[in-house]
Amino acid sequence: MIGTSMTKGPWLDLTGRISAVTGAASGIGRAAALALAEVGATVIVLDRDVVGAHRVADAITAAGGIAAFGQLDVTSEEEWVETGLWIGKTWGNLDILVNSAGIVFSDRVGDEDIEPYRKTFAVNVDGTLLGMRMALGFMRAAGKGAIINISSAASFTGSSIMASYGASKATVAHLTRSAALETARCGHDIRINSIHPGLIQTAMADDFYGIYERVGPPEAVEAVMTTGRAGRPEEVADLIVFLSSDRASFISGASIAIDRAKSA
């Protein structure tokens, strides 16, 4: 029947949903936290920068939303366990997790120093895996939920100057697909997707500009890395909100590029 939708009510309404966002003090994480709150979700703002997390939570509550904040080093298994216990004690459930915390260094496969690789994988991969493990404890019990992992368009191609970053983000995408397949085969309505932003106007973009300084000033870097302009964090947040909602009920295990056709 034309015009019939299985999802009733407003186009997007996450009222009553409990969400957690890592790396939420700035950048894409901050934009996601604000956007989730705007459509009614309770937002748990998590970041190693507790002052920044507090600031974002305050902005949400000042706008009439519901938020709390917590300090979290995503590389720490112990802190993830403590965060899960806090969420369980305070809210009893977790409906949405956005794994947004990330880090980038310039390195090459042939470098003697392996520390950039270790640090990159600790944040980007270990942090994502530990976050999914924590969230899945709640979601399996409830039989439903949504996890959005922030990967990168850098995962689609090799790089001679950001080898570990691209590799870590490709690993995030693979873990996402594996977890999505696992939950679907267990009969749970838990949707797990990765999104792959191109160059976005965040503090991390400043790192990219520094890494690509041989290209020239920021506008020259954007000419190389984009199809006309860098994206805005809010544009990525819109996709995160959609994937968190029931409107994305048949999307799981997807790797979605959001880079204005740069990787097309």
Rank of each mutant, 00 (worst) to 15 (best):
R177I: 07
W80E: 00
G253V: 13
V98L: 07
L175H: 12
A257C: 09
L97N: 00
E219S: 15
K144L: 06
T157Y: 14
R118S: 07
I192W: 02
S178P: 02
L175M: 15
F156Y: 13
A254K: 07
L85V: 14
A163Q: 06
V221I: 15
V56S: 04
A41Y: 06
K119P: 05
S245G: 13
Q201L: 11
A33H: 02
G64T: 10
G9L: 12
V98D: 01
S159C: 10
V221F: 08
A237F: 08
R260E: 11
L72G: 06
T15G: 13
S76Y: 08
K169E: 03
T171G: 13
A142S: 15
G88K: 02
V51T: 11
S255Q: 12
R55W: 06
A25D: 04
G166A: 12
V104A: 14
D111I: 10
V56K: 01
G187I: 09
A261T: 15
G145K: 03
E38S: 15
T42G: 09
M204N: 03
E235K: 06
A223D: 14
E213N: 12
T183G: 00
L46D: 01
A68S: 12
K89E: 14
S26T: 12
F208W: 10
V39M: 12
L34R: 02
P116H: 10
S255A: 15
V21T: 04
A135T: 05
G16W: 09
S263M: 13
A135R: 03
F121Y: 15
V172M: 10
A184C: 11
E79L: 11
D259Q: 06
D73E: 14
G137M: 04
G166L: 02
L46I: 08
A220K: 15
V74Y: 04
A32M: 12
T4I: 15
E112A: 13
V123T: 10
D47E: 10
I44H: 05
R17A: 08
A203P: 05
I258W: 03
A35N: 09
W86I: 01
V21P: 00
A179W: 03
T226E: 07
V81M: 11
I251E: 00
A67K: 02
K144N: 09
T183W: 00
N124W: 07
A146T: 11
V224H: 11
P233A: 10
L199F: 09
T83W: 02
K144H: 12
I2E: 09
S245M: 07
A261P: 07
T171V: 11
A184F: 08
E219C: 12
C186A: 14
A237C: 10
E219W: 13
A205P: 03
A223I: 05
D238H: 13
D189H: 09
M134G: 00
L94W: 06
D47R: 02
I18K: 03
E115L: 11
I211D: 07
D126R: 06
R118F: 06
R260T: 07
R214F: 15
V74H: 03
P217C: 08
A153W: 00
A203T: 11
E182S: 12
A203Q: 12
